[in-house]
Simulated scan of single mutants.
Amino acid sequence: MIGVERVIMVRRPLAEVVAYLEDFGRTEEWDPGTVRCVRLDDGPVRPGARWRNTSRFRGRTTDLRYELVLRESARLLFVGENRTVTARDDLRFAAEGTATRLTYRASLKFKGFARLAAPFVRGEFERLADEVVTRLPTAAEAWRS
C-alpha cells in the first residue's frame, strides 16, 4: 500500500468546505488525476452515495467505483475500488478562525499482481498529492453553494 498526507488551508468556514467536498463528483475540479466523475445514484449525498471516477494515472485511464463510507461534521471517507486497486480518500477538517484546515490522506492498495507496481508509482502519487494542495483550495474557495 502507498499513501500520502497533505495539510491544506482553505479560506472558507468548515461547514462550507465539508459541503463542497462531500460531493465526490467535484473531484474533477480539484483532483489532477480525475478525468470524469459521475454520480451513480440519486438523492442527497450521504453515506452509501456512489460515483464512477475515471482517472488518468501514468498515462493510463482507469475507472473506480467510489462510495461515501463516512460523513461526519469534520470527516469524510470515500473508498473506491476496481479489480486491481482499492483507493481511500480520508478528509479530516478543523476550523481555524474563518478558515478550515484540511488533512487530506489518500492511499492505494493494489491487488494481485498489481501489488508489484506499488514501489514504481509512489513518486507519481506524491506529485499528484502536491497538485491537490494547489488546486483544492482554489476550487473550494470559488464554489458557491
Score class of each variant (00 low, 15 high):
Glu72Val: 02
Asp42Gln: 13
Ser73Asp: 14
Ala95Arg: 12
Leu21Ser: 06
Thr61Trp: 07
Val69Leu: 13
Arg36Lys: 15
Glu28Gln: 13
Thr100Val: 04
Gly112Ile: 03
Pro32Phe: 11
Ala95Gln: 08
Leu40Cys: 04
Phe110Asp: 00
Arg56Lys: 15
Arg71Tyr: 05
Phe24Val: 09
Ser107Ala: 13
Asn82Leu: 05
Leu116Ser: 07
Val4Glu: 10
Asn82Gly: 12
Trp51Pro: 06
Arg39Lys: 11
Leu91Trp: 10
Ser55Phe: 12
Val85Phe: 03
Met9Pro: 04
Phe24Tyr: 15
Phe120Pro: 14
Arg52Thr: 03
Leu68Asn: 15
Arg105Lys: 09
Leu14Tyr: 13
Arg105Cys: 04
Pro32Ile: 06
Ala74Tyr: 04
Val35Leu: 15
Ser55Thr: 10
Asp31Thr: 11
Val4Trp: 01
Leu91Asp: 03
Arg115Val: 10
Leu77His: 10
Arg115Asp: 00
Ala74Gly: 05
Phe125Ser: 09
Tyr20Leu: 00
Glu124Cys: 08
Arg26Leu: 09
Trp51Leu: 06
Glu22Ile: 01
Leu76Ala: 02
Glu29Ser: 12
Ala74Arg: 08
Glu72Trp: 05
Gly3His: 15
Arg71Trp: 02
Arg105Phe: 07
Leu68Ala: 13
Phe113Glu: 01
Asp41Trp: 07
Pro13Leu: 02
Leu108Val: 05
Ile2His: 14
Ala19Arg: 13
Leu108Asp: 05
Ala99Asp: 09
Arg56Asn: 11
Arg39Ala: 03
Arg26Asp: 11
Arg71Cys: 03
Ala129Ile: 05
Thr86Asp: 00
Arg83Cys: 00
Gly97Leu: 00
Leu40His: 07
Phe125Asn: 06
Asp90Ala: 03
Leu77Val: 15
Ile8Lys: 10
Arg65Gly: 02
Arg127Pro: 04
Pro32Trp: 09
Val85Asn: 06
Glu5Met: 04
Ala99Gln: 07
Arg58Lys: 13
Pro47Asn: 10
Asp130Asn: 14
Phe93Thr: 00
Arg12Ser: 06
Ala15Cys: 01
Thr34Lys: 11
Val38Lys: 14
Leu68Ser: 08
Ala118Asn: 07
Leu108Ile: 08
Thr84Ala: 12
Gly112His: 10
Leu91Ala: 01
Leu102Ser: 08
Ala114Phe: 15
Arg75Lys: 09
Arg6Lys: 00
Arg122Val: 14
Arg6Glu: 00
Val4His: 04
Glu126Asp: 14
Thr61Glu: 13
Leu91Ile: 05
Thr61His: 13
Ser55Gly: 12
Ala106His: 10
Thr84Trp: 05
Glu126Phe: 13
